[in-house]
Simulated assay, not measured.
Amino acid sequence: MEEVCLEDVPAGAVVAAGRQSCLTVLGHRLRPAATGPRLGAVAHAAVRDATGPVVLVPDA
């Protein structure tokens, strides 16, 4: 496991870092919305644009 710190737009940085990894793990909180819970912008971009598997770990 390696922790990576990049200076970029958060969603772009996560997707870019994920291209060089076997697995991307992100913590997330579901945001309440009128139509039901939804992912935030960074988690959504990671799931949508990742080239490998993404694990979203819910906030406890």
Score class of each variant (00 low, 15 high):
Ala45Thr: 08
Gly40Gln: 00
Glu2Ile: 09
Val42Asp: 05
Arg38Pro: 03
Leu23Lys: 09
Thr24Trp: 02
Val42His: 04
Asp59Cys: 12
Asp8Cys: 08
Leu23Glu: 14
Val54Ser: 08
Glu3Ala: 11
Arg31Leu: 15
Gly40Met: 02
Ala60Met: 04
Gly52Arg: 03
Leu6Trp: 04
Thr51Ala: 14
Leu23Ile: 02
Val55Lys: 01
Gly18Tyr: 04
Ala13His: 03
His28Glu: 03
Ala11Asn: 03
Glu3Gln: 12
Thr24Tyr: 03
Asp8Ser: 15
Val4Phe: 06
Val54Phe: 06
Glu3Cys: 06
Leu56Gln: 06
Leu6Ser: 09
Leu30Gln: 10
Val9Gly: 02
Thr35Asn: 13
Ala50Gly: 09
Val55Thr: 15
Arg29Lys: 10
Leu23Phe: 11
Asp59Val: 10
Val14Asn: 08
Arg38Ala: 14
Asp49Ile: 01
Val42Gln: 07
Pro10Trp: 00
Asp8Val: 02
Pro37Lys: 02
Glu3Val: 13
Gln20Val: 08
Asp49His: 14
Gly27Met: 00
Glu2Asn: 00
Pro32Phe: 01
Val47Gln: 04
Val25Leu: 13
Asp59Pro: 00
Glu2Arg: 09
Pro32Thr: 06
Ala46Ile: 08
Cys5Glu: 13
Gly27Leu: 01
Leu26Lys: 07
Arg38Cys: 11
Ala50Thr: 05
Val4Pro: 06
Thr24Val: 15
Arg38Asn: 10
Leu23Cys: 13
Leu23Gln: 14
Arg19Cys: 03
Val57Lys: 04
Ala13Lys: 01
Pro32Asp: 11
Val57Leu: 09
Glu2Phe: 00
Glu2Gly: 07
Ala45Met: 00
Ala11Glu: 09
Pro10Glu: 02
His44Lys: 10
Gly18Cys: 01
Arg31Glu: 15
Arg19Val: 02
Met1Pro: 08
Pro37Asp: 12
Pro32Asn: 05
Ala50Met: 01
Ala17Val: 13
Val42Pro: 05
Ala17Asn: 10
Cys5His: 10
Arg29Cys: 04
His44Leu: 07
Gly52Phe: 02
Ala46Lys: 04
Val55Ile: 14
Met1Val: 03
Ala41Cys: 04
